[in-house]
């Protein structure tokens, strides 16, 4: 294994509208275990940002603590990044977003970081409809501390030591829908076809976009008996095919009518998907929750875009903050000067 990332660049590598190659969106060499699902997600993020023509420096990457939270080092090295403390990424993201609403906020977290220590901050970030994409790289276990069960571990799943989990799992997608997230999707690290358009749609969404991405832990949770192993998850996932069409791009692919659904996003881009359950209205909270339960009762996990509220008010709308980023306001604009202080003093006499 090499520890030096090759800097060779193919002279004819395709470039996006900004003139950047896909390589420009990559990061440092991953130090995660070979075959880790998280690396596939990092690759999907690279693809999504490259294809969306996002300027890398206009992205702020944020994470908490854990294997997943290390990954921002492995993509978009041209972006600022903040690896904060365990379970507290949402609050740092909130502050950052309040300071400058013009950046793209991409948070990466894990199931321990989100569903245990960070459950409160996660729920409140969703509830405030903070404008960010929040990816949970969900493997059902604590990798960095060698495989303890996490709160998303499914009931009945067996860990590497052979213990069967009896506690109920925390479903972060369902929770996000319940508390007010306005874009909720679920996917699988091994399904690039679905994951890349889903990340693109999430990044284009205005508001809190949660992606619960099942990402098997090859070292501690990929054995027979685990419900989050590659093999098991492939057998239970019910895939909702998905296609993301950015603004200005011609719509080419054709879908069978009836189960096809088109969602025009806030920025004009289009998400097209094939619903697996014709009763599932992805713009209806209750319907989304019912669809999740429906598949669960059949021992299946629905992946794809589960819920979207296209025109919700994000945190800045609710607060009524100015369009201009707060961090761009100048001293002259912010400081009232001594004359106002005179009037304050006068009022206190």
């Amino acid at each position: 294994m090499t520890y030096i990332k090759p800097s060779f660049r193919h002279p004819k590598a395709p470039v996006n509208e900004l003139g950047w190659t896909r390589q420009d969106y990559e990061g440092g060499l991953s130090t995660l275990c070979a075959g880790c699902g998280h690396d596939s997600i990092s690759a999907a993020i690279v693809d999504a940002c490259f294809q969306l023509n996002i300027e890398p420096h206009k992205v702020a990457k944020l994470s908490g603590i854990g294997c997943s939270s290390k990954t921002p080092a492995y993509f978009l090295s041209g972006s600022h990044s903040f690896n904060s403390v365990h379970g507290r990424m949402p609050s740092v993201a909130t502050g950052a977003n309040l300071a400058n609403r013009d950046l793209v906020y991409l948070g990466v977290s894990g199931d321990g970081d989100t569903a245990s220590i960070g459950l409160g901050q996660f729920a409140h970030g969703a509830r405030r409809n903070l404008n960010m994409t929040y990816i949970v790289e969900n493997n059902g276990c604590y990798g960095l501390t060698k495989g303890q069960d996490s709160a998303t571990m499914d009931t009945g799943s067996v860990n590497k030591k052979g213990d069967r989990n009896v506690s109920s799992p925390m479903d972060v997608a369902r929770l996000a829908i319940e508390v007010g997230a306005t874009f909720v999707g679920r996917s699988f690290s091994g399904d690039k076809e679905q994951l890349v358009p889903l990340i693109k749609a999430a990044l284009s969404h205005r508001g809190f976009a949660l992606l619960d991405v099942i990402s098997p832990c090859v070292t501690f949770n990929n054995h027979a008996g685990s419900y989050k192993s590659y093999e098991y998850f492939r057998s239970v996932k019910e895939v909702m095919p998905l296609d993301f069409v950015p603004v200005r791009e011609e719509i080419t692919a054709s879908y069978a009518s009836g189960t096809t659904c088109e969602v025009r996003m806030h920025d004009g881009s289009l998400v097209r998907l094939t619903k697996q359950d014709s009763d599932h209205d992805i713009e209806d909270r209750q319907s989304a929750l019912q669809a999740i339960s429906h598949y669960e009762s059949q021992g299946k996990v629905l992946t794809g875009l589960l819920y979207i509220d296209r025109d919700s008010e994000e945190l800045h709308d609710v607060l009524g903050t100015a369009r201009r980023p707060l961090n761009s306001l100048t001293e002259q604009e912010l400081c009232p000067g001594s004359r106002f202080l005179d009037s304050i003093n006068a009022g206190l006499r």
Binding site: A60, L62, F82, S84, V85, R88, P90, S91, V92, A93, T94, G95, A96, N97, L98, A99, N100, L103, G120, Q121, H124, R128, L315, H316, L319, G320, T321, A322, R323, R324, L326, N327, L329, E333, L334
Partner: peptide, 25 residues
């Protein structure tokens, strides 16, 4: 519109996190 933002956080941990995020930015 407001040239400021005040957020009542869910707890003090979060309040401090927001302060750090905003200053970082």
């Amino acid at each position: 519109k407001k040239n400021y933002a005040i957020v009542q956080a869910e707890d003090e941990l979060s309040a401090m996190g927001m302060v750090i995020g905003a200053n970082w930015n």
